[in-house]
Nucleic acid binder design. Structure first.
Length: 112
DNA sequence: AGGGTGGCTATTG
DNA sequence: CCAATAGCCACCC
């Protein structure tokens, strides 16, 4: 009888799975925060980890990584060469109002 | 194996 | 409103 448990997903692998599952659910024109996503996947202190995972998504990913903002409703991504923010541009393109580099979470936050 | 590092956050002044 | 602070914890050398 094998003694290893290497068929069972690890906790983090399961969190990762959940992360992509939830991410895919965020509707166009809505946003969530890193901390919110962390809680949804059952890793309440993992906001930072969530951000790191999103940063690792392949460039051609169809997942809506741009709908994840920080707790202030701002983007945590660096500005591009033109001094504008790719994430916020994408959000605007789907109808999200951005004022002063921020999105009103009270209005746009997706609550499952 | 140990310590620095974040696409973070809540709290306080 | 802003800034400083102190938690956080998986990841990555």
């Amino acid at each position: 009888m094998p003694k290893s448990n290497d068929q069972q997903p690890t906790v983090m692998q399961e969190h990762e799975r959940q992360l992509y599952a939830w991410l895919a659910q965020i509707p166009r024109g809505s946003v969530v925060t890193y901390g919110q996503l962390a809680r949804l996947i059952g890793h309440p202190k993992g906001a930072r980890w969530v951000g790191r995972q999103l940063g690792r998504l392949p460039a051609d990913s169809t997942l809506p990584w741009h709908r994840v903002l920080n707790a202030r409703g701002a983007s945590s991504l660096p500005l591009d060469a033109r001094g504008s923010n790719r994430q916020l541009r994408r959000l605007q393109r789907e109808g999200v109002l951005v004022v002063d580099g921020r999105v009103a979470l009270a209005r746009y936050r997706w609550v499952p």
